[in-house]
């Protein structure tokens, strides 16, 4: 489903499939993506993060409307790609324990937003 994202971010709608609701899903998406996908995502989203945060801060986090949540998820997905572009030059962490040995659990804010 490709519902348009809320204004003024409708132009980011092509990236909607990156709007994943859990840290676990975002990490797995990141490490299965190609570096060119990640770089494109990073470069597109970099100038949008501050505006997205300002826009979403109109609501208390606990009252974020459902149609706005994908914007939050896009911004958090951006943080995953930032490590790849700024530090690793790779989708995954080079010279590290393999991601198949890790389990991720939700913190309080993730539970709050996704409840």
């Amino acid at each position: 489903m490709n519902n348009p994202l809320p204004e003024p971010f409708a132009h980011l709608t092509p990236y909607r499939s990156w709007a994943l609701s859990t840290e676990d899903a975002r990490m797995r998406r990141r490490i299965s993506a190609s570096m060119s996908e990640i770089t494109d995502y990073y470069q597109t989203l970099l100038p949008e993060i501050d505006p997205i945060a300002k826009h979403l801060d109109k609501w208390p986090l606990a009252e974020l409307p459902a149609e706005q949540k994908p914007l939050l998820y896009l911004a958090m997905m951006f943080m995953e790609t930032a490590m790849c572009v700024e530090f690793f030059f790779d989708p995954d962490v080079p010279e590290a324990l393999g991601a198949e040995h890790i389990e991720l659990y939700a913190g309080r804010s993730e539970q709050l937003v996704n409840s």
Binding site: K54, L56, W59, P60, L61, L64, M76, M79, E80, G107
Partner: peptide
């Protein structure tokens, strides 16, 4: 506990 989306986005960076 983040009360705003901005704080949650910021924390996500440090978590990663």
């Amino acid at each position: 506990m983040p009360t705003s989306a901005g704080a949650m986005i910021s924390q996500e960076y440090s978590k990663i």
